[in-house]
């Protein structure tokens, strides 16, 4: 199983005739995504590049005619906020906005008007999401992924690919990988995605990749401490970034000593997350964490009595302390 997206998800591409939109639509179809329509205002009635995928003028038509239930947005930044609202008002429940460079003021309005309407917005300024072996909505390279049971959630793009590649190389597959985006205002936070992974019976472990700036990682850590029993491996990029400087993502800015990598890592460690110091160790750390569970489970199956004995021994030990 997976979260948010599978083979049945019916995707409409907003901005399907643009350079980015058309290229990635091709890639998504090739991966197996059920792309049912495209939208480009003024180009309704055409078909997408030699395929049967119809192009409509509005998202509402795509919902009505071909029953689209997810949207991916590739329109330029000055039109993107409008595109998100159009999708939401047409009844789309999963909206993935790839567009980079949307003004924060626009996103503040969009975010707050979507609140409470049951819409899941991923991004903007994100690579999208993929349920390996099933479907992808976004721009990530499909081939590095592997079907499996680890959920990945991240604020960055290529760093997520790095983590995924490490997992796949160790034969650890992924249930779903979600790039939530690096902007100051994003539709879904770590907590939102981690909650879904936690409730997904086919996700056994979670990788979260954060960045300096903001407090989303700290909030996720608090949620994990309270609710999550699955192993979580975490990394924070930007330990060496100087304070007050903007590092590409608007999100990656530390101001006034808040949101530093050290603070985030401390909060995550406290919550029982396996925090890795080096981004090269994300995969191997998840492997160790999963192996640990496996061996525990084996003990359970082999003999409940033995475990009971162990508990007694442990209790004695702790008394000695």
């Amino acid at each position: 199983m997976s979260i948010l997206l599978d083979k049945k998800t019916r995707v409409v591409v907003q901005g399907i005739t643009g350079i980015e939109g058309s290229y990635h639509t091709g890639q998504m179809i090739e991966y197996g995504t059920n792309v049912v329509a495209g939208v480009t205002p003024g180009k309704g009635g055409q078909k997408f590049e030699g395929t049967k995928v119809p192009i409509y003028n509005t998202v509402a038509e795509a919902v009505k005619v071909v029953k689209a239930n997810a949207s991916v947005i590739f329109v330029p930044p000055s039109f993107a906020a409008d595109a998100i609202l159009e999708a939401a008002n047409a009844g789309i429940k999963l909206i993935v906005c790839i567009t980079e460079g949307i003004p924060a003021r626009d996103m503040i309005s969009v975010y707050n008007s979507l609140k409470g309407k049951g819409v899941t917005l991923i991004g903007p300024n994100c690579p999208g999401l993929i349920s390996p072996g099933k479907a992808k909505i976004g721009i990530m390279p499909g081939f590095i992924h592997r079907e499996g049971k680890v959920g990945v959630v991240s604020r960055s793009g290529t760093l997520t690919y790095e983590a995924v590649k490490q997992l796949s190389d160790l034969k650890i597959g992924q249930s779903t990988c979600v790039g939530i985006g690096g902007d100051p205002v994003i539709g879904s936070q770590f907590v939102d995605i981690i909650r879904l992974f936690n409730n997904d019976p086919n996700t056994d472990g979670i990788v979260m990749i954060g960045e300096i700036g903001g407090s989303a990682e700290e909030e996720a850590a608090a949620f994990i401490k309270k609710n999550v029993l699955k192993p979580v491996v975490g990394f924070i990029a930007g330990r060496t970034a100087p304070p007050g400087r903007r590092m590409g993502h608007a999100g990656a800015i530390i101001s006034g000593g808040k949101g530093t990598a050290a603070e985030k890592m401390a909060a995550m460690k406290k919550s029982g997350i396996y925090v890795v110091e080096s981004p090269a160790e994300i995969g191997i750390t998840m492997k160790k964490a999963l192996d640990k569970i496996k061996s525990k489970k084996k003990v359970k199956v082999v003999s409940k009595k033995k475990k009971a004995v162990k508990k007694v021994v442990l209790k004695k030990k702790s008394k000695k302390k």
């Binding site: 991240s154 793009g157 290529t158 760093l159 790095e162 930007g238 060496t240 400087r245 590092m247 990656a252």
Partner: peptide, 23 residues
């Protein structure tokens, strides 16, 4: 390529005993 990976690479440089000269 990519801001997140760039920051992670700076972190790797530091862990390898160097100091990043840039982002």
């Amino acid at each position: 390529n990519g801001a997140g990976l760039a920051m992670a690479t700076m972190d790797i440089i530091k862990l390898a005993g160097g100091e990043p000269a840039n982002f």
